[in-house]
């Protein structure tokens, strides 16, 4: 246990080790630690952001879905209404058309009737004339008529 030059050797060694540690050991490892810390912090932040975004997206999706459902229901209701309206309209049209046809047919029938009546009237007139002719042709006596015609001639 003597104090000797080991003291100096130890002091020099110590200084060298500290220098080496300060130069080659401490900075790279602390840099790696800091970088990892930053990475982890970034990762956590981005996962937090992702979660928020997911939440927003879910909310938006449900709103859109809700709206779509609402729209679909509206459309169906509208279509139903429209359908009913069309049927009603068609019924109405059919009724009107029917009426019109009936009216047309009645008019035609009347026309036909009046035309037939006219024809009948014509034919009756002809028949009357023909009948009269026949009657006249039988009644006419050429002798009697000749006396008459002769008296007429005398008067002249």
């Amino acid at each position: 246990m003597n104090i000797n030059a080991t003291l100096i050797a130890q002091a020099i060694m110590f200084g060298l080790f500290v220098w080496f540690c300060m130069r080659f050991v401490w900075p790279p490892i602390t840099a790696a630690l800091a970088a990892r810390q930053k990475q982890i912090a970034d990762g956590l932040a981005s996962s937090e952001r992702g979660r928020n975004e997911l939440e927003l997206a879910t909310k938006r999706a449900s709103t859109i879905l809700h709206e779509a459902k609402q729209q679909a229901a509206d459309l169906v209701a509208q279509a139903e209404k429209r359908g009913v309206a069309i049927i009603e309209e068609a019924k109405e049209q059919a009724r009107v058309e029917g009426d019109r046809i009936i009216v047309g047919a009645k008019a035609e029938i009347e026309q036909e009737v009046s035309r037939a009546k006219e024809q009948l009237r014509d034919q009756v007139a002809h028949l009357a004339v023909a009948g009269a002719e026949q009657i006249l042709r039988r009644e006419v006596d050429a002798k009697a008529h000749a006396d008459m015609l002769a008296s007429l001639k005398g008067g002249l």
Binding site: N4, T6, L7, M13, F14
Partner: peptide, 12 residues
């Protein structure tokens, strides 16, 4: 256990 060593460090 050698005082030279411990004193070597403490002197620095």
């Amino acid at each position: 256990t050698d005082p030279n060593v411990t004193f070597g460090m403490s002197i620095v």
